[in-house]
């Protein structure tokens, strides 16, 4: 370590250098996951099983939370809009906030805590109990057999979950706005439809959720694979998955939103 650059990096201290080393390893890990992905996706029953774990088992929490979030949005929005005599725009408010922001973001946060932590714990425990080593010794690549299907299962599930969240939220908004507060159903839907743009709002929301799915799945499988093979190691990795995912989701959201809606 004699060259000035590495000295400069070392002076930043161990936390920074360790974080950089980890980031570099995560990139290398992503490449090795992508490299074996064709194999993993060819055996689609493996990915099916992971969609079951990551997607199907998250449906309940997504649907219920989506419904509640939509209802709260409608109640809160109505209070404000009715002062300006614009209560017929309630559908617009609910739909735009869900489709653009809350669906992808809250969906991804729930997904990270429900499915991401489970993925990390499973891979971490498989490593701790030498199951990954055993696979390697059986000439089966654990990245291809275990990691890649979990990764793609998450990537495929996430946009579907986010769409379910938004749809349920809008339904919740409809229940509160039309059934409870007595707005006109026709204007609720038609105002919403004329104000929400398919390409600008819906497609961008889906793009966001795909990006979040990619990020959360990568963090989850990486933390599991990188976890120290002990009980504390796995529990720490599970916590890190949820915390890192939340930070990355929100940070990415700022970036993507600035990129998508800037100047329009």
């Amino acid at each position: 370590m004699t060259n000035p650059l590495s000295r400069a990096l070392q002076s930043l201290g161990a936390p920074v250098t360790n974080a950089l080393i980890k980031l570099g390893f995560a990139c290398r890990f992503l490449v090795s996951v992508l490299k074996v992905s064709p194999f993993a996706l060819c055996r689609f029953s493996l990915t099916m099983r992971e969609i079951w774990f990551a997607g199907v088992l998250s449906v309940l929490i997504i649907v219920v939370s989506g419904l509640f979030v939509g209802m709260v949005l409608a109640l809160q929005g109505y209070e404000t809009l009715v002062r300006f005599g614009a209560s017929s725009s309630l559908g617009v408010l609910v739909a735009l906030s869900l489709v653009r922001e809350l669906g992808p973001v809250i969906g991804a946060l729930l997904f990270a805590s429900r499915a991401g932590s489970a993925i990390t714990a499973e891979i971490g425990l498989m490593k701790a109990t030498e199951q990954l080593s055993a696979m390697e010794m059986m000439a089966v690549n654990p990245v291809a057999r275990v990691v890649a299907p979990k990764f793609w299962g998450g990537v495929i599930s996430m946009p579907l979950l986010a769409a379910l969240f938004s749809a349920m939220g809008i339904f919740g908004g409809y229940l509160v706005g039309v059934q409870l507060l007595g707005l006109d159903a026709g204007s609720f839907w038609s105002q919403m439809q004329s104000a929400v743009d398919f390409r600008l709002d819906v497609v961008n929301g889906v793009i966001k959720s795909v990006c979040f799915g990619f990020a959360v799945s990568l963090i989850a499988v990486f933390e599991g694979y990188d976890a120290p093979p002990t009980a504390e190691g796995v529990s720490g990795a599970t916590t890190r998955t949820v915390v890192t995912s939340a930070l990355v989701i929100l940070g990415l959201d700022v970036l993507l939103t600035a990129f998508m809606f800037r100047g329009i």
Binding site: A95, L164, Q193, D197, R199
Partner: peptide, 29 residues
């Protein structure tokens, strides 16, 4: 059973996307 539930899940997700595409938004551009 896994196939059934995964199939149902994907169908639900696509229905939700269609709902967002057809009922909630309009193709204004």
């Amino acid at each position: 059973m896994i196939d059934f539930w995964v199939g149902l899940f994907i169908a639900l997700g696509i229905v939700a996307l269609l709902f967002l595409a057809l009922k909630v938004s309009s193709q204004s551009s």
